[in-house]
Amino acid sequence: MMLKFFGQLAEITGKTELSISPEENTEAVINKMKQQFPKLKEQTFQIAVNRIIAKDNQQLEPDSEIAFLPPFAGG
């Protein structure tokens, strides 16, 4: 599955995109990323699944697009 990172989170991971082996839910993906990039633990972020903000621990499909979104700053 494809992960996307934006803003300060792309700086922390050093990547804007990352392909990982499929996980069942968003919590598993978050834990995996926190393990790989420990600095993510200090960050505030939301997860979007297929461009919609995930509520709680959302189930994923192998082709889900998962985005790590830091706090918004538009306007």
Binding site: F6, G7, Q8, A48, A67, L69, P70, P71, F72, A73, G74, G75
Partner: peptide, 23 residues
């Protein structure tokens, strides 16, 4: 827009350092 649109802003200072803006 401010609450729900995924837009980010890097505040760049005159000395070229920066910080990430938060609404």
């Amino acid at each position: 827009i401010k609450a729900n649109v995924p837009i980010w802003g890097k505040e760049i200072f005159e000395d070229e350092t920066y910080q990430w803006k938060e609404n």
